[in-house]
């Protein structure tokens, strides 16, 4: 039995989640861990070097179609590798990331094998892999058994492995191989798109006053701005606020936005979905205001206030102003 870990990389660097995946793979004790690197020509060696010591084997494919991420190419390559392997993997692990959300379900379709996405924990129970998933907006947790298939696929929520087991350093063998992909993949990478750099870098702020869906409207952001001004803080937000065009993308705290670690993080009307929570949970002090006492934000906040942000925030603004004279 063995586990394959699909490595994520961008611009010649492995993404942090790759190391988590390798640790996840090792922790399952299902046998040797193989790191699979799919990269453009000339990129593989440097990436493989980063894996050295962290997996029993690195399977390296360099192909022009991998120069930029292409979910179709990646799924086709993985399917071909897995089906053609002398010892097929029992489990293929990847990240529940923008890339993973594209290639993993496609691969599951191609291999027709059980798959779960966005697992927060994996364990072996007997012969089967069992995944724990967070469902219904973080309010419930579900355990899914991936039946006794020959091969299964799981993608893992980045940052979900709380205590990374220290994998003993192993000897890594590198095995270069190739796959034959159709010349027409049906989609082509055109360009990277970077958000226009704004004049505010929320990741540098000492104090963030962050607003979520509970702010209800663009006009109401004044409430947060007033508090931020009193505190000398910066205003940031969660995803729905950007989706509604109430604040620019540069203010977004979250996986698709910025990761922040301020001294104080004040969350106003933010429910605390993991996409947001994972990007601010390391803040030194988190104070959350939310109407719903069961909002997931209260699980990671140090101090919680169940109430209306439109009452609490102005009261705090007034208190801070009074204290500062």
């Amino acid at each position: 039995m063995s586990v394959w870990v699909v490595c994520e990389h961008r611009n010649g660097a492995l993404r942090e989640v790759t190391y988590e995946l390798l640790a996840h793979g090792a922790a399952l004790c299902m046998g040797a861990v193989t790191a699979v690197i799919l990269a453009g020509p000339g990129e593989g060696e440097a990436l493989a070097a980063l894996i050295n010591g962290k997996a029993e084997r690195t399977l390296l494919v360099e192909d022009p179609s991998m120069s930029a991420f292409n979910g179709t190419a990646q799924a086709l390559a993985l399917a071909s590798l897995a089906e053609g392997a002398q010892e097929p993997p029992k489990a293929i692990l990847g990240a529940h990331s923008a890339a993973g959300m594209d290639w993993a379900p496609t691969l599951a379709g191609k291999l027709s094998c059980p798959a779960v996405t966005d697992a927060v924990a994996l364990s072996m129970e007997g012969d089967s892999l069992t995944a724990t998933r967070v469902v219904y907006g973080g309010k419930l947790q579900s355990k899914i058994k991936l039946g006794g298939a020959k091969m299964v696929i799981a993608t893992i929520r980045p940052g979900s492995l709380e205590d990374e087991p220290k994998a003993a350093s192993v000897e890594t063998s590198i095995e270069a191989t190739s796959v034959s992909l159709p010349s027409e993949l049906g989609k082509r990478f055109i360009a990277w798109v970077e958000e226009a750099a704004g004049d505010v870098d929320i990741s540098q702020a000492d104090i963030l006053v962050s607003v979520g869906r509970g702010i209800q409207d663009k006009e109401n952001i004044d409430v947060a701005e007033a508090l931020a001004e009193a505190l000398g803080a910066t205003v940031s937000c969660s995803r729905p606020v950007v989706d509604m065009n109430w604040l620019p993308k540069e203010r977004q705290v979250g996986i698709s936005g910025k990761t922040v670690k301020p001294k104080v993080y004040i969350a106003l009307g933010i429910s605390g979905a993991f996409q947001h929570a994972t990007a601010m949970k390391d803040s030194a002090m988190i104070i959350a205001v939310n109407k719903d006492p069961k909002a997931p934000i209260f699980q990671i906040a140090h101090y919680g206030i169940v109430g209306d942000l439109f009452k609490v925030a102005p009261a705090l603004t007034a208190a801070v102003r009074a204290a500062k004279g």
Binding site: A98, R188, I190
Partner: peptide
Amino acid sequence: RELEGGWGEEVE
């Protein structure tokens, strides 16, 4: 496609 960290990738 929306990527992490404020990035995106344009695909045809």
